[in-house]
Amino acid sequence: MPTASAAEAAEAALPRAGSAPGRLAGVATMVASGLSNQTGAAIGSLAFPVLGPLGVVAVRQYVAALVLLAVARPRLRAFTRHQWWPVALLAVVFGTMNLSLYTAIDRIGLGLAVTLEFLGPLAIALASSRRRVDALCAVIAAAGVIALMRPGPSADYLGLGLGLLAAVCWASYILLNRTVGQRLPGAQGAAAAATLSALLFLPVGIVLVVRQPPTATAVACAVAAGVLSSAVPYLADLLTLRRVPARAFGLFMSVNPVLAALVGLVGLGQGLGRAEWASIGAIVAANALSILTSPAPQVEA
């Protein structure tokens, strides 16, 4: 019999869902996941002067691949062509999403970049609904985006555009993950996609090392970004979804743009004006309103 994975062992050690300790563990895990993700992005940005966003993303892809391979242990040789093509698309989207996000962070800051990226899953949620309240949520979110992207002499339209590209990639990532999940068991598809994405970024790492050997500090920051923004959130979310309702999980995820803005302010000194904070609040409120007003799922007897 195969030995238990690290994720399974950690899951067995936590309190069961439904109990008070289980709910508290779920909330604590969600908080840790959100802070870890945004802190990792902030630490990774410290390596931009040496590695650039492309180099940091390359290292992050390597770390994500190693972690997912260890957790999921995919049987790559058994994959069929029917299974490989969505995995290949997912790998391209995965790499493009991280590269566009980190480049946007470099240009417009952590809080605004993550807020724009968050429009991806929000658009998926609103597009699949025909409720009037969700139409209102879409209007609120659109108003927030317009306020964020208002014309100005100092507006970085390339950075804003890259943030929106990250949003499109995240939406595509969600849709492709559904397809991959239907064709491959567990996290094997995600692990295969992460591995393929890491291979695509392998030439980047080689070129960086040959042209200008990076400093140990820069590499450490990039590795920390991979661990904190890929490995920890993946394992934390895997455990959290077994201990809190999906609605509560989605509601907390909507707070990530706020966490990103706070981490950017405290850790990187990236302050935001009132208009930016209002825009972030509008987008977060739109998602929260959609989740809180959605009907509870029917539980079969």
Score class of each variant (00 low, 15 high):
258 V>N: 03
129 S>M: 10
96 T>Q: 00
142 A>E: 02
76 L>S: 02
164 L>P: 01
56 V>F: 08
215 T>D: 11
54 L>R: 14
88 A>S: 12
22 G>T: 07
67 V>T: 15
2 P>C: 04
263 V>F: 05
227 V>A: 07
58 A>I: 08
33 S>C: 15
219 V>F: 08
227 V>K: 05
177 N>Q: 14
25 A>P: 02
41 A>D: 08
161 G>N: 08
106 D>F: 04
265 L>K: 03
90 L>N: 08
283 I>Y: 00
172 S>C: 13
180 V>Y: 00
168 V>Y: 00
8 E>W: 04
110 L>Y: 06
153 P>Q: 06
43 I>T: 09
26 G>F: 03
186 G>Q: 11
202 L>V: 05
45 S>D: 07
213 P>W: 13
240 T>G: 00
130 R>L: 12
181 G>V: 12
197 S>D: 04
61 Q>N: 09
99 L>G: 02
16 R>M: 06
110 L>Q: 05
297 P>Q: 03
118 F>K: 00
151 P>A: 08
285 A>H: 01
201 F>A: 11
37 N>W: 14
219 V>H: 03
2 P>E: 14
20 A>I: 13
147 A>G: 01
209 V>Y: 12
18 G>Q: 05
217 T>V: 15
142 A>N: 01
33 S>L: 15
75 R>T: 11
289 L>M: 14
242 R>G: 02
110 L>M: 09
265 L>H: 08
31 V>A: 13
210 V>Y: 07
264 G>H: 02
142 A>P: 00
284 V>P: 00
162 L>F: 04
150 R>C: 02
49 P>W: 04
189 G>V: 12
25 A>F: 05
177 N>S: 15
156 D>K: 01
167 A>R: 00
82 H>K: 09
188 Q>W: 02
132 R>E: 10
295 P>I: 13
84 W>Q: 10
153 P>H: 06
288 A>P: 01
296 A>L: 15
243 R>D: 03
72 A>L: 11
192 A>C: 06
289 L>W: 10
187 A>N: 14
239 L>I: 13
294 S>I: 07
218 A>N: 06
81 R>E: 11
224 A>V: 08
79 F>N: 06
234 Y>T: 06
175 L>R: 07
212 Q>W: 03
74 P>G: 05
147 A>T: 14
243 R>S: 03
109 G>K: 07
145 V>T: 15
108 I>W: 01
48 F>I: 12
9 A>I: 15
263 V>K: 01
140 I>Y: 00
217 T>P: 00
259 L>S: 02
188 Q>C: 07
58 A>E: 07
155 A>K: 04
299 V>P: 02
11 E>L: 09
62 Y>M: 14
244 V>K: 00
115 T>Y: 01
104 A>I: 13
290 S>H: 14
228 L>Y: 08
258 V>H: 03
288 A>G: 03
61 Q>Y: 01
5 S>H: 09
